[in-house]
């Protein structure tokens, strides 16, 4: 099963490699991983997407918690949560195809953020599945380049993951 894990950790050099190293050393999957400092510059927030059965994910969270730099951790999949990913995608948009491309962007509520004679760069936000759907709808031959952030997640409700 897919799990999305939010980690609050010390913003120190080497902390990221400890997390990455843990996954490779113990043979766990990482589907995606994003990390950036928080409003408190001594802390980083990491969102990590992994797959595994219940026992493996339990071990993953325990092993992550064991890392000295990990301050707090939450498996967002345990409760209701919001998940968003951002994608920048460069599409071929030559004469005669520009209208169709624009329509697609509108349907998915994306934004065109760069235009040339022959291409658009589209910015699109949403659940990962929505981004997948956009790529599929745009057709392989018209996709020049794709860059995705990997999902970010936050739990619903009043509680926050903080110190």
């Amino acid at each position: 099963m897919r799990h999305i894990i939010s980690i609050l950790m010390e913003n120190e050099s080497g902390a990221l490699s400890r997390v990455a190293g843990l996954f490779s050393a113990r043979g766990y999957n990482i589907e995606s991983l994003t990390v950036a400092p928080t409003e408190d510059p001594t802390l980083s927030r990491m969102t990590l997407v992994t797959r595994g059965d219940e026992a493996i994910v339990e071990q993953i969270t325990k092993q992550l918690n064991k890392l000295i730099e990990v301050v707090k951790l939450l498996d967002l999949s345990d409760g209701p949560h919001i998940e968003r990913e951002i994608m920048l995608i460069k599409l071929k948009a030559e004469n005669g195809k520009r209208e169709e491309a624009m329509r697609l962007v509108e349907i998915f509520r994306g934004k065109v953020v760069d235009v040339t004679d022959s291409t658009f760069v589209v910015e699109l936000t949403g659940k990962s599945a929505k981004l997948d759907a956009f790529i599929k709808a745009a057709h392989e031959e018209s996709v020049v380049e794709v860059v995705r952030s990997g999902p970010l997640g936050i739990a619903r409700g009043a509680k926050g993951l903080r110190l």
């Binding site: 026992a55 339990e58 071990q59 325990k62 092993q63 918690n65 064991k66």
Partner: peptide
């Protein structure tokens, strides 16, 4: 003492 030792190999 180590939570990660628990149910690691044997439930």
């Amino acid at each position: 003492i180590d939570p990660s030792s628990i149910s690691k190999n044997v439930r």
